[in-house]
Design a protein around this nucleic acid. Structure first.
Lengths: 159, 159
DNA sequence: AATCTAGTTGAGACTTAGTCTCAAGAAAGA
DNA sequence: TCTTTCTTGAGACTAAGTCTCAACTAGATT
């Protein structure tokens, strides 16, 4: 079954009104792996220019609140969204040069996290774990000009 | 030795001009554990209202590029800065109710990260690892009203 | 100490990303 | 079909941050 149909059924089952605008927005959103709010606005308005910016933001907020999309703050740049509906939990590895994003799973880290929160008497609700580096290609390319990304912290650089 | 003196020496050694504005900004910044750019602007301008907003932002950028401060995108709200100069690497655990931030160290996770990046042929440059949850106190408090934070993702909630 | 000059500053316009308001329009139940 | 409630488009508004430029100043040079 198409991914957007599942999402639409999920929304309907929660008593959320399925308007034409929302359907369009959901269908465009699932076509991306990752996207920014403004990218989605542009994309949707390319197909139907009558859809207001506000509607895209509102729908994105709705999808976020209902757990259909996840919001990622990759460094440098506006937040990034991902339709995680019916998708296994994963974390991200990003190339700071070309922007490639790789999704990885690491149950061992999840396990250690549990130990950490227990240590401080916390109840774990969620987490983010992002790795930044250079992919094989970019490592061998001499950047033509300085990237816009700020210099890395001395302490952050892993030997 | 006072923390800000060390930072000032570090900047000087790198040939960075030490103006009165920069000294004030550094001194206020090191007095916080975590702060937002706007908080720092307000704080600095309380002491010297002639310092421009832009100067605080520029100096913060300078401190960031030189690795004196680190920028954290805790979810919900503007980014958070931390003077990490001469401070051991650590990650963060945050209470989403009261905002408490705990710094923790987990060499085991750092080690697993190395394995992950090797798996994909990447060179690791930096990472962020943030845990969100409820502290002991907040877990037992019935929130008076819904928090502004978006609902958690089903997949994000750890059993 | 006076001079020089590249780097820094204040002021404020500008940008980007996102929120809010409200009248008009559309979905779903009665 | 009517009614109620929710959603929408339009655009004003806000928050956070960036940029420009003439005036100023730290620190090097004399």
């Amino acid at each position: 079954m198409k991914r957007f149909v599942e999402v639409e059924q999920f929304l309907k089952a929660r008593g959320i009104r399925l308007t034409g605008e929302r359907q369009l927005i959901v269908r465009r959103a699932v076509s991306y792996l990752h996207f920014t709010a403004e990218e989605l606005v542009k994309d949707v308005r390319t197909i139907d220019p009558t859809v207001a910016r506000g509607t895209v933001y509102r729908t994105l907020g709705l999808l976020h609140r209902t757990g259909v999309v996840e919001k990622h703050d990759f460094r440098y740049g506006p937040p990034n969204y991902e339709v995680t509906f019916a998708k296994a939990h994963h974390d991200h590895l990003m190339c700071i040069q070309c922007g490639e994003i790789i999704e990885f799973q690491e149950p061992r880290v999840e396990h250690i996290q549990e130990q950490v929160v227990k240590r401080y008497g916390y109840q774990l609700l969620s987490h983010t774990h992002k790795l930044y580096g250079l992919c094989q290609k970019c490592r061998h390319v001499n950047p033509k000009r300085a990237s816009k990304a700020p210099m890395l912290h001395v302490e952050e650089i892993v030997a």
